[in-house]
């Protein structure tokens, strides 16, 4: 009986695959699909393939080297530094910018003309291209006469080499990133907060909840799906944006601001070690895939909060 229905189902599936409606659907899909295959999936496969080949200096053709590129990469101190930096950079930007964005959102959820103004001001850094923002922050960080040192001097604090010292540079870049992204995340949180029905708060008030308890037991859990979404966006930002590194520090001083994407760029275009660049790309694509897989799962889990 069961078998019967499945074969029946299979036949129906095959039939429906070729029916007019389906063909039409595929036709409609084909342009987008074509470009997706051409520019996303094909390069991904190609890169994976390439990561197993290497053309040593002077050789005239590529040789299959198995996992040799991977072991070369993992033994490259610069790569390890880049991964470490990226890790610090991720933790040090994702969490603060989300917390700050959430804090802004909490203060600015109710609409009023004043709050709308503040919201636009806070959102503004998101609209500035990263390259321009980096150039702007160069002035802020300029030792001695930059905006930051100028004001710190008024407080009696000595001038600091914000970008030139290996101890400070990465943190200076992180400040810029937080400044740039917090307003963006704020927007998601505002949308999320506005989606929480007023009656949940009213019920909580009558049940005896104060401000903190409402935040703890109502707002935070109901914002779960929004937070997961913002978290993933923030992580992706961390791996995909290096404009500021290029503009401000070129990965230095002493590799202290080298991030994985910049490492890939350097190997591909400066050191001409395409095999290493390719292999590092494969690894970071895998991390990004893992993140998006994780994100879709969490977001699906969040859906049943509605209704």
């Amino acid at each position: 009986m069961r078998d019967n229905t499945t074969t029946h189902g299979k036949k129906r599936l095959v039939k429906s695959f070729f029916n007019a409606e389906h063909i039409k659907a595929w036709l409609y899909l084909s342009p987008a699909l074509l470009f997706l295959l051409l520019f996303t999936y094909y390069p991904m496969v190609q890169v994976l393939w390439d990561s197993f080949f290497h053309r040593p200096y002077g050789a005239d053709k590529e040789l299959f080297v198995g996992f040799d590129n991977y072991s070369r990469l993992l033994n490259d101190e610069n790569f390890i530094t880049a991964v470490k930096n990226n890790f610090i950079y991720a933790i040090g930007t994702v969490i603060p910018s989300i917390v700050i964005g959430f804090g802004f959102a909490l203060c600015l959820t109710q609409s009023s003309r004043f709050k709308n103004c503040i919201r636009s001001l806070l959102f503004f850094p998101t609209l500035v291209p990263l390259v321009a923002a980096a150039a702007l922050w160069m002035f802020i960080y300029f030792p001695g006469i930059g905006l930051l040192d100028y004001y710190l001097a008024k407080l009696g604090i000595q001038s600091t080499d914000w970008l030139g010292s290996p101890d400070n540079a990465l943190y200076s870049l992180m400040m810029l990133t937080i400044w740039k992204n917090a307003g963006f995340y704020m927007l998601f949180f505002i949308a999320g907060l506005q989606g929480i029905g007023e009656e949940y708060y009213e019920a909580a008030s009558l049940e005896g909840a104060g401000w903190w308890q409402k935040l703890r037991y109502v707002t935070l859990p109901l914002l779960g799906p929004t937070s997961a979404f913002v978290f993933v966006i923030a992580l992706i930002h961390v791996f995909t944006h290096v404009d500021h590194v290029i503009v401000m520090t070129l990965g230095g001083p002493m590799g202290s601001t080298n991030l994985v994407l910049y490492y890939i760029y350097q190997n591909a275009h400066e050191f001409n070690d395409l095999a290493k660049a390719t292999t590092a790309t494969v690894l970071s694509v895998m991390v990004l895939l893992a993140i998006s897989f994780f994100s879709i799962r969490t977001m699906e889990r969040g859906i049943h909060y509605e209704s």
């Binding site: 029905g197 009656e199 009558l206 509605e306 209704s307």
Partner: peptide, 30 residues
């Protein structure tokens, strides 16, 4: 919260992230 009133809302305003037991016991927990 200090008026000692309980209200039943038209759409009940039950918390979707809490179980039935947690919803019922919410006020006591607070």
């Amino acid at each position: 919260k200090d008026r000692n009133i309980a209200m039943i809302f038209q759409n009940y305003a039950l918390y979707p992230h809490m179980t039935v037991a947690e919803n019922i016991g919410f006020g006591l927990k607070l």
